[in-house]
């Protein structure tokens, strides 16, 4: 039975059956590493992030990188055409990916991407929202919760201010955005389960 790695952070869902599990994993890691580095660079640019202790910077990035990538790469999910574009540039239909063994996670990613895209946020709004996603004081292993909480509150205030300024007649947008945070947590948990299944396999 052929194996597939149905993650758009891979160049392609097809896995070479001649390669060992370790080689497959190495190739996959090679594929997603640049995107992870971009998340770290993004984190560094958040005002106040570099003032957090090193341990907490790493903890926030470890816990939040997947969620930041989901937000940044929402455009890979074409809701209208029901296709996913992998990092290699090829589009695959949901049906094709389903036949490859994709899980409910894929459908949930589509739902999330659709709702986020429908909010019609500007690049600046999306960037600030992404900062709020990354700086969450309730991530596990945070040492200085107060510092992270203070930064989180500052970012949320800034996001509310920006949304209110840009969308004076659409006050629900800010609430809808905050409600995306638990959605992202849920996706993150589903993704972790998928990783476990893949590694065990």
């Amino acid at each position: 039975r052929r194996l597939h790695l149905v993650c758009p952070m891979n160049t392609s869902p097809h896995v070479d059956p001649q390669k060992s599990g370790h080689e497959v994993w190495e190739e996959f890691a090679h594929s997603f590493t640049p995107a992870v580095r971009e998340v770290v660079e993004f984190g560094k640019k958040i005002p106040g992030f570099r003032d957090l202790c090193q341990h907490d910077q790493v903890s926030l990035l470890k816990a939040g990188t997947f969620e930041v990538l989901v937000v940044r790469f929402a455009s890979l999910f074409d809701v209208k055409d029901r296709t996913v574009t992998f990092l290699g540039g090829t589009k695959y239909s949901v049906d094709t990916l389903r036949a490859m063994g994709s899980s409910d996670l894929l459908n949930s990613m589509f739902d999330f991407s659709e709702k986020l895209t429908n909010l019609g946020l500007s690049e600046e709004e999306m960037s600030l929202f992404t900062a709020v996603v990354l700086v969450s004081a309730d991530r596990s292993g945070i040492e200085n919760v107060n510092s992270v909480e203070m930064l989180q509150e500052t970012l949320i205030r800034a996001l509310r201010g920006l949304i209110t300024k840009n969308h004076p007649n659409e006050s629900a947008i800010f609430t809808k955005l905050l409600l995306k945070l638990p959605d992202l947590r849920s996706l993150n948990n589903m993704h972790s389960e998928q990783l476990l299944a893949f590694k065990v396999h």
Partner: peptide, 27 residues
């Protein structure tokens, strides 16, 4: 599987990417 980031090798990538910046701060 309580720490998927470590299992993915993410922690190593993150630490290396942060390192230059952190070294700058220490200086």
């Amino acid at each position: 599987f309580s720490d998927p980031a470590s299992n993915l090798g993410l922690e190593d990538i993150i630490r290396k990417a942060l390192m230059g910046n952190l070294e700058e701060r220490q200086e």
